[in-house]
């Protein structure tokens, strides 16, 4: 019994002695706390390089856009993207041609998951996109092979109207490359939510959305400037 009480006393004394030491050690190990972020940390503007690249490399379509965003608490980034999308494409086997050129916009927000404020950001966000546009479709070789006399009756639709609403789920990273200059990229999954097209047919491409379909993928490489 005496041994047990002696053991308990030693244990308690050692605890009392060790805890302040441990506290002191951990105090030295802690990094200085980051000052809390301001509510509003300014605006940023940027340009997407992918669309311009596709345009100059002769891609079949290109979304050329600029963006502006606000920075709240270094965490929340409401964002507005405005662009012009265009497409020129000939059919592979059919002698058809599609053309459109129209503006589009997206509005949404990013959330920054990185806790350190060292200029690097991991962003996850969502956008709502909309475009109302006119598209042209032509097929000069259209022929009634049963009732016709073999003469082609060219089809030339101009100004067919289309409207598309869609969402974008975005994942991206960015880093500060010089003072107020940032470079980043996003990968985007785009589900279409509402469409209205001409009875003659759906457009091959939707400005801002990409190749038309129920879903598609896209991306951006952004050069941004904090202001």
């Amino acid at each position: 019994m005496e041994r047990i009480s002696r053991f308990i006393c030693i244990l308690l004394i050692s605890l009392v002695a060790v805890v302040p030491c441990a506290a002191k050690k951990s105090k030295y190990r802690l990094e200085p706390e980051m000052p809390s972020a301001k509510l509003f940390n300014g605006f940023g503007v940027g340009i997407d390089g992918v669309g311009l690249g596709m345009k100059f490399l002769g891609g079949r379509f290109a979304n050329m856009e600029v963006m502006a965003r606000a920075n709240f608490l270094e965490k929340y980034f409401p964002i507005f993207e405005l662009g012009i999308g265009e497409a020129n494409r000939d059919g592979n086997e059919q002698n058809t041609h599609f053309h459109t050129r129209a503006p589009y916009f997206r509005i949404g927000a990013d959330y920054c998951f990185t806790t350190k404020r060292n200029g690097n950001r991991l962003l996850v966000g969502m956008r709502y996109g909309f475009s109302s546009f006119n598209y042209d479709y032509s097929n000069p070789d259209f022929t009634d092979e049963v009732y016709g006399d073999g003469t082609a009756t060219p089809i030339d639709f101009e100004g067919l109207n289309g409207k598309t609403h869609w969402l974008e789920i975005c994942v991206g990273v960015e880093t500060r490359i010089w003072k107020f200059v940032r470079l980043g990229w996003t990968l985007r999954y785009k589900p279409r939510i509402y469409t209205h097209y001409s009875e003659h047919g759906d457009p091959w491409y939707v400005p801002g959305f990409g190749k038309n379909g129920s879903t598609t993928w896209g991306g951006s490489v952004n050069l941004m400037f904090d202001i």
């Binding site: 058809t96 009875e199 003659h200």
Partner: peptide
Amino acid sequence: NYEHFESLDCPVKM
């Protein structure tokens, strides 16, 4: 009658 196209790669249908 009205013309309808499915895709650029498909023939137009009446």
